[in-house]
Amino acid sequence: MAQILLVLTTVASRADADCLARQMVEQRLAACVQISAIDSVYRWQGQVQAEGEYRLLFKTTIERYPALEAALRAAHPYELPAIVAWPCSEVLAEFADWVAGEVTCTP
Rank of each mutant, 00 (worst) to 15 (best):
Q47C: 01
S89K: 01
F95R: 02
G52W: 03
A12W: 12
A12V: 04
V41A: 12
G52M: 03
W86H: 00
V84C: 03
V48C: 06
R28T: 03
R28S: 08
C19D: 15
P81H: 05
Q27P: 10
V33Q: 07
C32V: 00
Q34P: 08
L92Y: 10
Y42F: 14
L6S: 12
V41P: 04
R22H: 13
Q34H: 14
L5Q: 11
A96R: 02
I35H: 06
A30C: 07
V7W: 00
V91P: 00
V99A: 04
E26D: 15
E94L: 08
A75P: 11
C32R: 00
L56V: 05
A12E: 15
L92W: 12
H76S: 05
P87T: 06
P87G: 13
Y54K: 04
D97T: 06
W86R: 00
L20F: 10
A31M: 08
Q47H: 08
E53I: 03
M24Y: 08
V103S: 03
V84R: 00
V84P: 02
F95K: 00
W44M: 03
D39P: 08
V91M: 01
S36T: 04
L8S: 15
A82C: 13
F95E: 06
E53S: 13
A85C: 07
E94G: 09
E102I: 00
W86K: 00
L5E: 10
A74G: 11
P87C: 07
V41H: 05
H76M: 09
R14P: 11
L57M: 15
L29Y: 02
I62Y: 08
A67R: 03
A75S: 14
M24S: 11
L6C: 13
H76E: 12
C88G: 15
I4T: 13
A37L: 06
E51V: 05
Y54L: 05
A31K: 00
E79F: 06
S89Q: 09
V7Q: 00
S13R: 11
R64D: 03
R22L: 14
C19S: 15
C88D: 12
T61A: 06
D97G: 04
L72Q: 07
Y54F: 12
V84D: 03
P66F: 02
R14I: 08
R14S: 15
T61N: 02
Q49M: 08
I35W: 07
E102K: 00
D97P: 01
S13A: 11
A12N: 15
C105N: 13
T104F: 05
I83N: 10
R55T: 09
Q49A: 06
R73F: 09
T10L: 14
Y42H: 06
S13M: 06
A96D: 03
L92P: 05
A12M: 12
V48N: 05
A50M: 12
T9Y: 12
W44L: 02
Q49Y: 05
Q34K: 05
A67L: 12
A82N: 11
I35F: 10
I62D: 14
